[in-house]
Design a binder for these strands. Structure first.
Lengths: 166, 166
DNA sequence: CCAATAATGCTATAGAATAACATTATATTT
DNA sequence: AAATATAATGTTATTCTATAGCATTATTGG
């Protein structure tokens, strides 16, 4: 099983998370001959500010002012960056939250699913063969051809299970 | 595996689907001492008009005029009915589509998932132990306590696989 | 440098969902 | 049955999410 649950739920040197994500992003965009512009990079950095999925308008609010013009960066621009980052596989959309989160292992093929803590809001991404196989097999029994999947599990992360004394 | 994929994807006597759903709904609401009012029943009937998830404003548009007053039934009222029907387990929300679909087996405990055809829009609900076990086990490996799950698979239903010749 | 393409700025608007308060209907108590 | 309490609906406005359309600026390739 591939997962970033250690990092997502426990305290750690988050700056390393961010810089690693940024480095990976640059490399991948370079390899794919697409442009990780300053704005796109800033959006990615904003999303990576935590392990909690972030809404598009939260991103708008938390983005620094445009370095060049000193003006705010508005929703359509942010949404364009989001679309770019989604296409490049650098972020994911969490459908149940209308929010976006950085992908911890972009570039690698993985049908992912998410463990989202209802208490602290942190989300871990996982990829488990067992689950993918189960999806494939159950779909097959209905003669259904799988093309994409959204799996979002809500509950309590390890830390918050301790916090809530029940 | 529990599923309504037969009915969802293939032609059938849909009136029976609807009347069966309505009957179940009445029974369940009666048992739970909650009121399936005319409007709530009309919303449920509208959702059950097909096996395709229906958006809230589509429901608003497709609802008949209020039998009593002859006026349109507006969004907040429809949303209230949706909330009621969700609470009673009579319908489900499809997060990836912002849409709602009738539950074919309400009352029974089931952690469900959906097979949604991108071609015809029909969605089948399934419940497979194998998948639930896989979810539980992978979550457990991350020390995550599962409370609810959203699993939405997109692809091609049996009928539409034949239609699209590839 | 010039033309073509890509990215961003900006305004408006579409689509999904709910807040707040008034009104009406139903249930409960007397 | 009348009075009261509770539940459901009507109505208007608003919030939140997302995109359309067009102008402007930046980047790339010749």
């Amino acid at each position: 099983m591939l997962t970033n649950s250690r990092l997502a739920y426990h305290s750690h040197d988050h700056k390393r998370c961010v810089s690693a994500a940024l480095t990976r992003a640059k490399t991948l965009c370079d390899d794919s001959d697409v442009r990780l512009t300053p704005i796109r990079e800033a959006v990615l950095r904003t999303i990576w500010a935590s392990h909690r999925p972030l809404g598009a308008y939260d991103i708008v609010d938390q983005m620094a002012l445009n370095a060049a013009s000193g003006k705010r960066i508005l929703a359509p621009t942010v949404y364009r960056s989001i679309e770019f980052l989604l296409t490049q596989g650098l972020i994911h959309r969490i459908a149940t939250l209308n929010a976006y989160i950085g992908c911890p292992f972009p570039g690698s093929h993985h049908s992912d699913f998410f463990l989202i803590c209802r208490e602290c809001g942190s989300a871990a991404e996982c990829s488990a063969d067992q689950l993918n196989i189960a999806v494939e097999q159950t779909a097959k029994r209905a003669d259904f051809k799988v093309e994409s999947q959204v799996i979002e599990i809500a509950g309590l992360c390890p830390e918050c299970q301790q916090g809530s004394l029940k």
